[in-house]
């Protein structure tokens, strides 16, 4: 296990090409660490006492049945829904101080796509920290936004009204906005939900390129069939944390059964692609 880590780290350092991550990060500081986080709507916990440790530079997934609190977990980590208890640390710093290193991709359905604005304007929202209240949008900002759109294959749609987009295109625009933030940790809420196959391919390509660029990606994910192909770290939750760790050792039939209970027939598990 130790050796494995050393090897991984060497590979990482080689890939980074001189631009080495800080010593603290290289030493295994988690990109996102949750400690004893509990969230409750009313009298029933949606998330109970979850500890999690998403390693830096991983492609991680939060997995669990519907209503298991996956999205709630993400939103509570971001402070969008209030926590009853718990602490959030990002790259070893308290959440508030590390906020600028996080990019968030909400669920597509969480906004009204009839809002009067264009694709490029939505991507420019990702530059809010840089632009602030009054700084003008300059050419380099536009070019950067266009480059982000290009990465998700939407450069030709920059001037489109957002209401004219398909579901998959909407998801790509949200991803482009997150790219514009230039963050180190990307939190995505169901990025593949209800998108077409082409979009799914395009999104996963972008996410993989992020990982290659030493970024950390954490997705709320619902499609068990693709977990092993897409992710290297998984967090199985159903109100409680059931299991967490490298996908290869954690995404097992036993853990899935424990997470999904009777909802996942064993026949279904048999068909899943599980780690060898």
């Amino acid at each position: 296990m130790k050796d494995q880590q050393v090897i991984e780290q060497t590979v990482v350092e080689l890939a980074a090409g001189g631009e080495r991550p800080s010593a603290a990060e290289a030493g295994g500081v988690a990109a996102l660490q949750l400690a004893e986080m509990t969230v409750s709507y009313g009298e029933k916990p949606a998330i109970f006492s979850v500890d999690a440790r998403i390693p830096a530079r991983s492609m991680a997934a939060i997995i669990g049945p519907n209503g298991a609190g996956k999205s709630t977990l993400l939103k509570a980590a971001l402070g969008i829904v209030p926590r009853l208890s718990g602490k959030v640390t990002v790259f070893g710093e308290p959440f508030q101080q590390a906020r600028h290193r996080i990019a968030y991709v909400p669920q597509r359905a969480s906004v009204d796509w009839d809002f009067p604005t264009r694709v490029i304007d939505v991507v420019l929202m990702g530059l809010y920290r840089e632009l602030g209240l009054l700084r003008l949008v300059r050419r380099r900002h536009r070019e950067m936004a266009l480059a982000c759109l290009d990465r998700v294959g939407m450069a030709d749609f920059a001037e489109r009204q957002i209401g004219q987009l398909s579901g998959g295109q909407q998801q790509r625009v949200f991803l482009a906005r997150a790219l514009a933030q230039g963050a180190d940790l990307y939190l995505l809420d169901e990025p593949f939900a209800g998108v077409d196959a082409a979009t799914e391919k395009a999104i996963i390509a972008v996410l993989k390129s992020l990982k290659e660029a030493q970024k950390t990606v954490l997705c709320v994910h619902h499609d068990l069939a693709t977990v092993i192909d897409y992710f290297d770290h998984v967090l199985l939750v159903n109100v409680r944390k059931i299991a967490e760790g490298p996908a290869a050792t954690t995404f097992t039939a036993d853990n899935l059964q424990a997470t999904y209970g009777g909802r996942l027939a064993s026949a279904h598990i048999d068909q899943l692609k599980l780690p060898a």
């Binding site: 969008i80 969480s110 809002f115």
Partner: peptide, 22 residues
């Protein structure tokens, strides 16, 4: 004019707006 950006951003996507510090 002054608050145009945060106002537009939080009107369109409140959850995201919160995460970028609005």
């Amino acid at each position: 004019v002054v608050f145009w950006r945060p106002l537009k951003l939080s009107t369109f996507d409140e959850g995201f707006a919160g995460t970028v510090g609005v």
